[in-house]
């Protein structure tokens, strides 16, 4: 039986500050602090890279460059987590998801789902960037898009 009424449950998000400033990830967190999303892309072959790597396998000598994206995507998969394994602990349940980013094919972002309906999402639903500001950092969380019609995620 599927309950079709929308729950008012507002799930929490983990509050775990990135423990160290990692140079290769700093542009990611800098972008999220501005409320944006950015990923590295090879300027020569245009391939997106995630996670950041030192070089593109296409063989170019030019390092991948960070490039902003629109902040929309599709839920590839998710889990409602009932037991937090984080050393800091965390309120549970929270919803962790992998989101295929629309305009960066091949990039699957780890994120948390927030806002209306986030406690009961569906694989294939479109999502939009909806950052959550925490005391120490801004988390690039996502909310369900207004149109919840599922679609297949971008091919990777």
């Amino acid at each position: 039986m599927i309950d079709t009424t929308e729950s008012e449950t507002q799930y929490a998000v983990p509050d775990f500050a990135p423990p160290a400033e990692l140079p290769e990830l700093q542009p990611f967190w800098d972008a999220t602090a501005r409320g944006e999303l950015a990923f590295p892309r090879c300027p020569d072959c245009a391939r997106w890279h995630w996670y950041p790597g030192p070089a593109c396998p296409c063989g170019t000598a030019t390092e991948p460059q960070w490039q902003p994206v629109a902040g929309t995507g599709v839920i590839h998969t998710f889990s409602r987590v009932h037991r937090a394994f984080l050393p800091s602990g965390s309120p549970v349940p929270y919803v962790v998801a992998l989101v295929d980013i629309d305009d960066a094919p091949g990039v699957r972002l780890v994120t948390n789902l927030v806002g209306p309906g986030a406690d009961d999402p569906r694989i294939g639903q479109p999502v939009v960037l909806s950052p959550t500001e925490l005391a120490t950092h801004t988390l690039p969380t996502f909310a369900l898009a207004e149109d919840r019609t599922t679609r297949e995620s971008a091919p990777s």
Binding site: P14, F28, Y51, S79, A84, L86, A97, L98
Partner: peptide, 23 residues
Amino acid sequence: VKASYEMPFGWYGQPVYFAAWAH
């Protein structure tokens, strides 16, 4: 990289990884 990028979202603990795969 996992500590600085994945753990802030609670993508941590192998049960979480395999749960997402199972789903």
